[in-house]
Design a protein around this nucleic acid. Structure first.
Length: 458
RNA sequence: GGUGGCGUGGCCGAGUGGUUAGGCAGCGGCCUGCAAAGCCGCGUACCCCGGUUCGAAUCCGGGCGCCACCUCCA
């Protein structure tokens, strides 16, 4: 049973299921107006790991993640580039999923778009106005947060301090600085939709409530996102559901920051790297591994050196896979019950993961198994070695990390060079043997002597 | 200004009141013709100052530094 930190209660508690055996998850997705950066990559990886782990336990997971395809940033971008909002959104959505595929992130089961749900949003806002929990101003419709019973639940700080700290420009017509826009009245040149309370477009916080409830239903199991969505976005989503008399998410999860030199990576600091760039210049698995080595709620330093360190670790893992000729099983989701994993390792791994997704501990356990597999093989206990090596592959597969140990095709020329080298070695012609090794390496091979025989790998 | 969090060895990064995190890099050894891969060993880490305790990096108080949220943000 997975225990997971719940932002609403501030505790680590069991992730309960509305319906036994099934887990419904909603993850707030990106606003598609630019290339995804490392910050997006992190939250996506964290929740991909959670999802895979639940599947590994034999649970049936429904994972919904939206695309915000209408908002201020998209409008600005479209104007800059002289094309429509829809074109901008379509392009960056495509780029988004390209990057995710390279990261080995499973595609969501449902990908709702905000623009497909405007009518439903209008209906919700209408009800909120009718119920007098929302009010109209000259520039839109706002939710009256004072009428929401436990507003501030996710913010984790007293309402007074939120209000006191509010640096929002005071809006004369807003009843409280905490009230937020459900609907933005039409402005010239912007996309608008009709509504009884005036033409306009939806505010950001409204779409996710409507889409989550539509696709997952009331009381769905888990709502996740990056830390920065906790307040105000998730708070405000929840506020609308509560105000509408609906039961919203049962559990809330939030993932930590990507840091660069001790600072949060963000657009405004201009210290961001796009995922597209990272994936072009490093092993795509390195970022996943780096994220796994840190706890999902803690910040993680992502810089060229830390990525390089992760790549070095991957080499060690790939060496193991090559040595035992055990292949990658990720990115296919793994169901643990279908595989043979060393029992004690499995128990420890599961205990770590069940403890608020303690991937650093799980990772350490599997790395210990890597050493154990190698040393078992060194002392000739091949059965044990293979069981452990296979376990390593399966458990990393559970986390979405594939090991590259596939048997590779060796071309005839390289095979001939290898044979020649072995012959030279038998004749103790070291100079020739070394020259042949250099030649093989120049051809891109990793050359290893295994039982005195030249073995080639990639 | 308000609120929350953090400060671990060269780097990344876990964790617990007393016992090895793990990874990367480094050093020594084994193996090898030499390497590579692998194995073994090593470094005696926990911001500062007090306090509680038989014992604190882990609890409490103070200080310093850093980060985040309160505003679009993963």
């Amino acid at each position: 049973m997975l225990n997971l930190h719940d932002t609403a209660t501030g505790t680590v508690r069991p992730l309960l299921q509305r319906q036994a055996g099934k887990v419904s998850i909603y993850a707030c997705g990106p606003t598609v107006y630019d290339l995804p950066h490392l910050g997006h990559g992190r939250y996506v990886l964290v929740w991909d790991v959670l999802r895979r782990y639940l599947v590994a336990q034999g649970l049936e997971v429904t994972f919904v993640s939206n695309i915000t395809d209408i908002d201020d940033n998209i409008i600005t971008r479209a104007a800059e580039e002289g094309r429509s909002e829809a074109e901008v959104a379509a392009e960056y959505e495509r780029r988004w999923f390209e990057a995710l595929e390279l990261l080995g992130v499973e595609r969501p089961d449902g990908v709702p778009h905000a623009t497909e749900y405007v009518e439903t949003m209008v209906a919700l806002i209408g009800r909120l106005i009718d119920d007098d929990v929302a009010y109209t101003t000259s520039d839109g419709v706002y939710l009256d947060t004072s009428k929401v019973a436990d507003y501030g639940l996710l913010a984790g700080q007293p309402l007074e301090s939120l209000r006191a700290g509010a640096r929002v420009d005071e809006h004369a017509e807003k009843r409280s600085a905490l009230d937020f826009a459900l609907w933005k009245a039409a402005k010239p040149g912007e996309p608008t939709w009709p509504a009884p309370f005036g033409e306009g477009r939806p505010g950001w916080h409204t779409e996710c409530v409507v889409m989550a409830l539509d696709l997952l239903g009331e009381g769905f199991d888990l709502h996740v996102g990056g830390q920065d969505l906790r307040f105000p976005h998730h708070e405000n989503e929840r506020a609308q559901a509560v105000a509408d008399g609906r039961v919203f998410a049962a559990h809330w999860g939030h993932s930590g920051w990507v840091m660069v030199g001790g600072e949060k990576m963000s657009k405004s600091l201009k210290n961001f790297t796009s995922l597209t760039d990272l994936l072009a210049q490093s092993d795509a698995r390195a970022y996943r591994l780096l994220c796994l080595q840190a706890h999902y709620r803690a910040p993680v330093e992502v810089t060229p050196p830390t990525i390089a360190q992760a790549e070095a670790t991957l080499r060690r893992l790939d060496n193991l896979a090559r040595r035992f000729e055990v292949g990658a099983i990720a990115p296919t989701p793994v169901v643990l019950a279908d595989h043979n994993v060393e029992p004690e390792l499995l128990a420890n791994f599961t205990a770590a993961m069940d403890d608020d997704l303690d991937t650093p501990r799980a990772f350490a356990l599997v790395m210990d198994a890597v050493s154990a597999a190698n040393s078992a093989a060194d002392r000739g206990d091949l059965d044990r070695a293979h069981l452990l090596a296979q376990s390593v592959v399966v458990l990393f597969g559970t986390l979405g990390l594939g090991l590259d140990g596939a048997t590779v095709e060796v071309d005839a020329t390289s095979a001939a060079l290898a044979a020649e080298r072995d012959a030279a070695r038998l004749e103790r012609d070291w100079a020739r043997a070394d020259a042949l090794r250099a030649e093989l390496e120049a051809r891109g091979w990793i050359v290893e002597d295994r039982d005195g025989v030249t073995t080639l790998g990639r």
